[in-house]
Nucleic acid binder design. Structure first.
Lengths: 229, 229
DNA sequence: CTAACCTGTAACAAAAGCGTCACAAATCAA
DNA sequence: TTGATTTGTGACGCTTTTGTTACAGGTTAG
């Protein structure tokens, strides 16, 4: 339970603060200032998770994340991105399909710990479980694919994320605002109706091959994934 | 559902804006201009969350947050800090004073609501009050659904709120006026007979699957939820 | 570089739920 | 019993919410 967590962040105040709070939570923090250094530490220490700053001297955090994803030995190493608030966040979000989560600065220690533990838990529970099946649906997270029955169904990135989120939290209503937060990210400021359209597209994809109403509307509240009725 | 949220902020424009948006989201905003005033309101009204400006006349927001954390009666009261953009130091100080989250000015109403709801949700999950059962009724707040016996019944927003309120306060008579206040909100000016019609609709929903008379009329007084007779 | 694809938004259509009213039924006070 | 008061019930516009389609801009793959 004393997971090693590597912090790659050039600003020492933030780095220290994160390390302090991780330690208080029973983790073993490792600190790095640059990607070059991080590469070595990852090889030597085999951390369980990486907290990666988006802005790094030399190679950017995103590029570094990409590189980690390309390498077979680090492909499954969970990464949480630390990003600054700003216009470029959208870009980050669009590009970082390989990143497990991201935290926007400034963040509270509680939020940071919550996300770290969530990602660690995810890795533990479903270490081998890259697939989740519900009814005749199978979501293949590793391959980023959706199976319905025997067939493979083509599904867009947003639809996939939306379905993934809903399936991970079934029998529970989420408002449009909450879905925007969880699926699109906390700082994607979009129309709430955008959610409706994607729900519609998702339903179309699902019902093209089956006839279930997994994705349900709760009037005045939001949407819900349920296998009942 | 109607959580009380205290806004401590000396700039009235910001305060009003926040209050307006909170109200639109179904919350009950309370407003204060200073820490002294806030202390009294917290004691009197028992809010569920505090939005605290970091710059306050007299005592600073951070100092006030620290004080709240020291006091046993307010130790668990969630605090969201409102800070101006900039200064790294603020971040560190704020985090150490134990606040739950941060919002950096200027912020959008959607972001503010998202964070408020996130913090409230976090507090609720610990409380684990997601389902309430009475007799063969089970109200599932998370799924926004009503179970009767084995069956699942879908229920409209107003009926759901009405039933929720009655079930939370069973064996007690509420007048139409009181029900309008608690279910529809203090500033909904409707005919009192509207309550009758919704009671009727609720009864229909309940008796469609069972034959109980949970919702009882008390002539001249109002309605009551009761499991006997 | 082009074509296919995906995305977010707007506009319109459909559906659902809401509040009010009018009248029926029930209850109460004489 | 009778008349008055209270509550139950069904119907009807109206508003709000959601479904659906179309489209313009942007991105990706080939």
């Amino acid at each position: 339970m004393t997971e090693k967590i590597l912090i790659v962040e050039d600003e020492s105040a933030i780095r220290e603060m994160i390390a302090f709070n991780l330690q208080r939570d029973g983790k073993t923090p490792l600190q790095c200032e640059s990607a070059v250094e991080a590469e070595r530490v990852i090889a030597d220490e085999q951390p369980d998770l990486v907290l990666l700053d988006w802005m790094l001297p030399g190679i950017s955090g995103i590029e570094f994340a990409r590189r980690l994803r390309r390498d077979d030995t680090t492909r499954k190493l969970p990464i949480i991105m630390l990003t600054a608030r700003g216009a470029e966040d959208d870009k980050v979000h669009g590009l970082n399909s390989g990143v497990d989560d991201y935290i926007v600065k400034p963040f509270s220690s509680r939020e940071m710990l919550a996300r770290v533990n969530a990602v660690l838990r995810r890795g533990r529970d479903g270490g081998a479980e890259d697939k989740v099946s519900v009814g005749d649906l199978t979501i293949d997270y590793a391959a980023h694919r959706l199976h319905i029955g025997d067939g493979i169904v083509n599904i867009g990135p947003t639809e996939f994320k939306l379905l993934s989120f809903l399936v991970r939290h079934p029998e529970r209503v989420y408002s449009r605002s909450q879905l925007l937060d969880h699926v699109w990210g906390r700082n994607a400021y979009l129309e709430e109706r955008t959610v409706d359209v994607h729900i519609r597209r998702l339903r179309q994809t699902l019902e093209a091959s089956g006839h279930h109403r997994y994705v349900q509307t709760v009037r005045g509240a939001g949407y819900r994934f349920s296998t009942h009725i």
